[in-house]
Nucleic acid binder design. Structure first.
Lengths: 207, 207
DNA sequence: CCCTGTGAATATTTTCACAGCT
DNA sequence: AGCTGTGAAAATATTCACAGGG
């Protein structure tokens, strides 16, 4: 229904509104939001017109209503359960990253292939063997899998996760994963972001 | 010159070609690449037409030439030096993430505000106080800053980094940063990726 | 015959610009 | 007066489709 551009921007608007709210603002205009992102106010208005609530001409949008509407539209008004696959450095950082819980994403399960890690507990959650992944996931009510294993094993754990019925995956391994069309994968490839910067850096140096 | 869509795709093509190469392939067609990404071959060809080298009709593209060309165009054929700002859980994961070095991104400096961390060494690099950031960066030859501090201090360190002459920033803090137009920021907001998944999850559940 | 490179056509996204509400 | 919501225009991105080369 909504295309990915709009969804991505709505998420940003949401964060911006929350910041405005923290700063004591009650109302916000399309231009206020647009300025933060260096976009046009027309685009912000068109995006916001997808929401149920309308803005007030001459005034703008009531911030707390707007945040609620965006949350509702994006499914951020509830909790989602997560399985973390891979308890290495990156997995640990993700697990203890405060932003996830704050946004309603709860780790319910941690899985690793390293026998030394099995049985270790993080915030009361025991790390379990990757071998049991499929049956274990089925017992819990998991919505999303975060893959934080080396590329070499990413496809393998991805297959398991999908076999266990998960349809939403956030992949931190720097590789493409092969899945059927009904599985949604987002790639959070850290090196990829740096490579993007590389291009602007290089263009700058050549100028 | 190249728009961000093309740059992002070229980076993906690059990785795919490397995978093909590892699998022993020497030549690749636009369709081979397109299939991996579920794109059209026409798009791949149009993107690749930005490169110096041409493909061979009836055969495709020579993989190692293609990889080299993309590397050259994107500035990936050299090393870039990085300052890591924030030596917490996330900072540590990023520092020890093997993908960066492999892609030519080298950490040259680590900075933190926590007095307990100052003096600690990671792979021989000493963690230095954030207070000295500006003067310290000037002494080194830093190209990119990675910000991995809490949102509350992100803008502050961002300002310092910019004052020290850095123009490329990868920001892991979940907040928008205010900078002048000549500074390029990429947002690697971990929660944001999950929020995107949330929308597809929610749409699915409603169906 | 198979695949590239690319004009032309199509589809999508963004911006303009203004009527209309508060 | 100031800002929203949105048709219509413009800009941008993608796909089609085919001539031409190996």
């Amino acid at each position: 229904m909504l295309n990915k551009f709009i969804v991505e921007r709505l998420i940003l608007y949401n964060r911006i509104c929350k910041d405005f709210s923290k700063a004591g603002k009650k109302w916000v205009t399309s231009r206020d939001i647009a300025e933060v992102l260096s976009k046009t106010s027309a685009q912000v208005r068109r995006d916001l017109s997808k929401l149920g609530k309308k803005g007030k001409p001459g005034v703008g949008y009531k911030i707390d209503e707007l945040v609620m509407e965006i949350n509702k539209l994006l499914g951020l008004d509830r909790h989602w359960n997560i399985v973390l696959v891979g308890a290495g450095n990156l997995g640990r950082a993700l697990f203890f990253y405060p932003g996830f819980k704050r946004e309603g994403f709860n780790f319910k399960m941690i899985v690793d292939s390293n026998p030394d890690k099995i049985g270790e507990k993080w915030k009361g959650i025991e790390i379990t063997p990757v071998a049991n992944l499929v049956q274990d996931i089925n017992k819990k009510d998991i919505d999303i899998a975060i893959i934080a294993v080396p590329s070499a094993s990413a496809q393998e754990v991805c297959d398991k996760v999908v076999r266990a019925g998960i349809r939403e995956i956030l992949n931190f391994a720097p590789c493409n994963l092969n899945v059927s069309d009904d599985v949604e994968i987002r790639y959070a490839d850290l090196a990829l972001e740096l490579q993007n910067l590389s291009y602007t850096l290089k263009s700058r140096k050549n100028r």
